[in-house]
Design a protein around this nucleic acid. Structure first.
Lengths: 189, 189
DNA sequence: GTCTATAGCCCGATAGAC
DNA sequence: GTCTATCGGGCTATAGAC
């Protein structure tokens, strides 16, 4: 565990506040108060509010891209790849629950990095969809609408940040397994 | 179809803008420009920005509550009740796609009505969870973690507003059926 | 590295003419 | 019902003392 710099501290505190009220509703004064300093002092460590948002969102988006690249290169069944995606989301969300809120809800407030973020997101969804389509071709997956399958899985996984904090008792492995069971196996007897 | 008053027009335009940028990032000047008038003119029809948010969110939340009350009073299997919940979400979202964004993302900016909103939401989730638990007791539903089942279904359904506008070709009935199939039946062969 | 003070701008909302 | 003008205040960010 690296030492947390003052800048990291600002970013982590901001993530928490952004999760509660959203980027636009959090002021630099709110953030400074939460850190126990004055707003002007923040600017000794960061250049702008926008820079904080960028730091939060882009690093997580790149984690997803890296994780997905590893998964699509692995030589396993498509069902097993979907299980790996579930685990990827559970792990990233468990490590940065607050940041996931900004990734989901505040990405449209990115300025310079908006196009880059959208590119990463589109590539991620394309890769996800391809795994499902190949799973259907290989008869591993039921012949349902592949976009509905992806939509259903992805929106559940993207909302994990809302749910993980309430279930601190559950460990990441158990959660990933239960989720895979429900998302892939369905719920009816 | 009732005639749309100027106030309705403001609320509908605001819903669209709130969906794109969130309540806090949309100014009364933005809203006025989108309507082709000046900001001051809005106040001839509404009393405050907050009143617009309240009008959007509370009416939808009450629709969900009414729909759920009908479902829990119906005498059918629990699986069939879950299918009705899927249909309820698809229908409400199809009728007010933009408003669903505020319900999901801007409820925390409610002032006077925040407690009431949270009460409706908690009751809805309690009812949803009870249907799943009774389905498990009656062996209609697999004995998985009921909260994970609800979380998975509900987050998917709550995110429909992101997805329905991209699939205008699909009609509401087909979408509800496909979704029920995936959410309840799972995806693996 | 934090402070006080403040620049320059935008916010929601109101007053009152037409 | 819409306009122009404006109030009082909050916003991000900077300057410069300590």
């Amino acid at each position: 565990m690296k030492t947390e710099t003052r800048k990291d501290e600002i970013i982590n505190t901001a993530s928490k506040l952004f999760k509660e009220k959203g980027y636009s509703a959090v002021t630099m004064r709110d953030l400074a108060t939460a850190m126990g300093i004055k707003a002007a002092s923040l600017y000794n460590h960061i250049n702008s509010k926008q820079e904080i948002l960028k730091a939060i969102i882009i690093s997580i988006a790149e984690e997803f891209t890296n994780g997905m690249n590893t998964i699509i290169q692995s030589e396993t069944s498509n069902i097993s790849k979907l299980e790996s995606i579930v685990t990827l989301h559970v792990n990233i969300t468990a490590n940065n629950t607050n940041g996931m809120a900004s990734l989901n809800n505040d990405w449209m407030h990115l300025e310079d990095q908006l196009d880059y973020y959208l590119q990463l997101r589109n590539e991620y969804e394309d890769n996800f969809l391809n795994i499902i389509k190949e799973g259907i071709s290989a008869s591993e997956i039921k012949n349902s609408n592949p976009e509905i399958i992806m939509f259903s899985m992805l929106t559940t996984l993207r909302s994990l940040y809302l749910w993980i904090p309430k279930k601190e008792d559950l460990n990441a492995n158990d959660l990933a397994n239960s989720l895979s069971e429900v998302l892939i196996g369905g719920i009816n007897n």
